[in-house]
Measured scan of single mutants.
Amino acid sequence: CHSECLGNCSQPDDPTKCVACRNFYLDGRCVETCPPPYYHFQDWRCVNFSFCQDLHHKCKNSRRQGCHQYVIHNNKCIPECPSGYTMNSSNLLCTPCLGPCPKVCHLLEGEKTIDSVTSAQELRGCTVINGSLIINIRGGNNLAAELEANLGLIEEISGYLKIRRSYALVSLSFFRKLRLIRGETLEIGNYSFYALDNQNLRQLWDWSKHNLTITQGKLFFHYNPKLCLSEIHKMEEVSGTKGRQERNDIALKTNGDQASCENELLKFSYIRTSFDKILLRWEPYWPPDFRDLLGFMLFYKEAPYQNVTEFDGQDACGSNSWTVVDIDPPLRSNDPKSQNHPGWLMRGLKPWTQYAIFVKTLVTFSDERRTYGAKSDIIYVQTDATNPSVPLDPISVSNSSSQIILKWKPPSDPNGNITHYLVFWERQAEDSELFELDYCLKGLKLPSRTWSPPFESEDSQKHNQSEYEDSAGECCSCPKTDSQILKELEESSFRKTFEDYLHNVVFVPRKT
């Protein structure tokens, strides 16, 4: 048989008469490798580009789960590009990614509803959504962080984005990388972005840091009482949809009607710091009717980097990364020049730590249904340095008659930039024990000054392991946590139920 035959053949030295091919099969003959313009397919066939392209389009058009959109890589027609490569849609070739590779997620039936953290986790790592997304989240724990972890990498949506009755959302900033909504599939009414009845939605994105392009379709905003109209108009300008909307697409009466839409800028007039305090004062603000001013709200939190936005980490279910302080308005003076500047002394802060701070007014709604208010920009203030805590785990070892090696770990709280350490030492008198000992005694162990690591005695271990207080009263049991108490109650309830079950099964009433 021919060298490319495997198993047997019907005619000697003829690659077209093989029972099976050793390498690849091409047009009725066995070959060692697939010549151009053919590609290896499933490690035994040679196919042309049209064959591989037909497989790709067949799966793409069917949208069946589990099928493969075949691509070409290293002269092979394979189910998908290997790690580190992405497909070129024009020629199906796998090309190296520039940075992290995109991950295209194809949605069944063309859309997916995100109504819980669990459903959001199914899209973790996706960068391109081939379909439409509907966000409908009523509640949950730590929602802002969970949504950002699972949806934060999405850069492109081919269909539309719909935010509907998501009472738990305060902001859409968890879509931190969303840059493009194509609108290839539109919501009824030709809408590519749809926001309806979101009672706590206050911000779409921080438009000073976020760009969003909507290729096709219109915007729809109705019944978002805490979303200011200025935020919607800003989205029109940034996304390129200005002029597409009709009169009733953006409701003037049901958007922002319960919001404090600040239209003035508060400026800080005085800032002073110490290692654990920050004193702030800002310019006074009074609405047209000074009785509408209820006070100020001061927001602050630790910020290692200057990239904080107002609604980071917030949701309507209680999660809030900001510390909020309510401040009463100052006494009002008739003389504008003698107006008191409101302020606040922030206490209990960490030394040498940068804080993000902003302040906003708290006002009631005027009778004319106009909203007044003022808010400052987010500023960054760093507390002063102070003395560091003591170095940890000092170790001293003498390696000769004239040297001592000293080692330690950095302090747990540096409280500033540590530039150097101060080492103090003092000579001590020799131990009298060394002169009084009889060095001729056998088995004498000389006193040693070398360091030995501390260890816990058996008594201390027994005390720590004991669940009861000892007789001397030195140790006591740790208080039980809520989960331990709940577990004990469940076990007790189970024992009672099981005992009742045994009584009912074992003891049967005697027939009379």
Rank of each mutant, 00 (worst) to 15 (best):
W207C: 07
S171G: 07
F220Q: 04
E148W: 15
L227D: 00
A168P: 13
G152D: 11
V128I: 06
Y305R: 11
D257L: 03
A195I: 14
E236I: 15
P330R: 15
I357C: 03
K350D: 15
T113D: 15
I214W: 08
I405T: 14
F358S: 11
E283H: 07
K409V: 11
M297W: 12
Y305S: 11
Q339D: 05
R347H: 15
V324F: 05
W344Q: 13
I188H: 08
L252M: 11
N198W: 00
L180V: 12
I157P: 00
W408S: 10
P391R: 01
K234W: 07
I114S: 00
A195P: 00
L201K: 00
T383N: 00
N320I: 05
I157A: 00
L108V: 10
N136W: 10
L151Y: 01
L107N: 12
M346F: 10
I379W: 06
D197M: 03
N211P: 04
A259Q: 09
R244D: 08
Y194E: 15
S321H: 08
A144E: 12
T371G: 07
K277S: 04
H210N: 13
S166W: 03
V238R: 09
T323E: 15
T273P: 05
S274N: 02
A385W: 10
M346A: 14
L108R: 11
G217N: 05
T118D: 04
V238I: 14
N211W: 09
I395P: 01
R179H: 14
G295Y: 06
C228V: 02
F220K: 14
T323F: 12
L349V: 07
F193R: 00
E187N: 04
L212K: 01
E109L: 11
C126L: 00
P394S: 11
I327A: 06
L294M: 09
F299G: 10
W205Q: 02
S333T: 11
A195S: 06
W344S: 07
Q403H: 11
G217D: 02
R347W: 08
R244A: 09
L392W: 15
R369N: 13
N141F: 12
A303S: 09
Q382F: 15
T118E: 13
L212T: 11
P288F: 11
Q306M: 01
S260L: 09
K350R: 15
V390N: 14
F358C: 02
C317I: 02
I114A: 02
H106S: 12
I250A: 13
D335F: 06
K162Y: 15
T361G: 04
G373S: 04
C261A: 15
G373T: 05
Y191W: 08
P304S: 09
L201Y: 00
G313N: 12
N334P: 13
D206V: 07
W286E: 08
K409P: 02
L280I: 04
Y167A: 13
I250P: 08
I271D: 03
G243E: 09
L180A: 08
T386V: 08
I157E: 00
L229K: 10
G313D: 14
V363S: 04
I379K: 15
S321D: 04
Y300S: 12
I129W: 06
M235R: 00
K209F: 09
L133Y: 03
Y300W: 07
D249V: 12
K337N: 15
V397T: 06
R124L: 11
A303I: 09
L219W: 11
R369Y: 15
S376K: 01
E310F: 06
D289S: 02
L212D: 00
R291A: 02
F358G: 04
N142W: 15
E262N: 14
S401A: 15
P288V: 06
E146F: 08
R272F: 13
C261Y: 02
D312P: 07
E109K: 13
F275S: 10
K360W: 09
D377F: 07
K350G: 14
S376P: 01
S400R: 12
F358T: 12
K218M: 07
Q258F: 08
Y372P: 07
H210L: 09
G139L: 05
N198R: 00
L204P: 03
C126W: 01
L153M: 08
A251L: 10
I379V: 09
R281I: 10
P342A: 13
L123R: 00
L266H: 01
L279V: 12
W286L: 07
E368A: 10
L266F: 06
P336M: 03
R291C: 01
P391D: 00
S166Q: 06
G343K: 14
F299Y: 15
Q121L: 05
P410S: 15
E246L: 06
E302T: 08
N263V: 06
E310S: 11
N141L: 12
H222Y: 08
K162I: 07
A251V: 06
M346I: 07
T364S: 03
L392N: 05
G159H: 03
L265K: 08
C105R: 00
A149L: 09
F299I: 14
K209G: 07
I278Q: 00
L406S: 05
G189K: 04
N200Y: 11
N200D: 03
I232S: 03
S132G: 12
Y191K: 08
G217P: 03
I181A: 00
W322Q: 02
Y194N: 15
V363R: 04
L229I: 02
S116N: 02
G159C: 05
L186K: 11
T353W: 09
G140P: 13
T361V: 07
F268S: 02
I404Y: 03
P284A: 00
N190S: 06
R244L: 08
I114G: 00
G217V: 00
A149F: 09
E237G: 10
Q203M: 08
P225R: 03
Y160E: 03
L345T: 10
F268D: 00
Q382C: 03
F193Q: 01
R244E: 11
R291P: 01
L153G: 13
D312S: 13
S398G: 05
S230Y: 03
H210M: 13
T215L: 04
L362H: 14
D206S: 10
S239G: 08
F311A: 06
C126T: 02
K162M: 15
C126M: 01
L294W: 06
F299D: 02
I214E: 00
F193H: 01
S230T: 05
Y380Q: 05
S274G: 02
A259G: 07
E122Q: 08
E122F: 03
E155M: 04
A374V: 04
I214D: 01
N130W: 03
T241K: 13
A149W: 10
V363D: 04
L279K: 08
R347G: 06
T361A: 06
R369D: 05
K234R: 14
S158T: 13
T241W: 12
S208Y: 12
T309V: 11
L204G: 09
I129N: 00
I163C: 04
A259R: 04
N211V: 09
D315E: 02
G183Y: 01
N142S: 14
P287I: 06
A149V: 14
E246H: 10
S166L: 05
H341E: 11
D115H: 09
D206R: 10
L169W: 02
G140Y: 09
D115Y: 13
G140A: 08
E155D: 04
T371E: 02
K337F: 04
L362C: 06
T273I: 10
L219H: 03
S171N: 12
K177G: 07
Q245F: 11
L133M: 08
W205G: 11
S171L: 02
R179N: 12
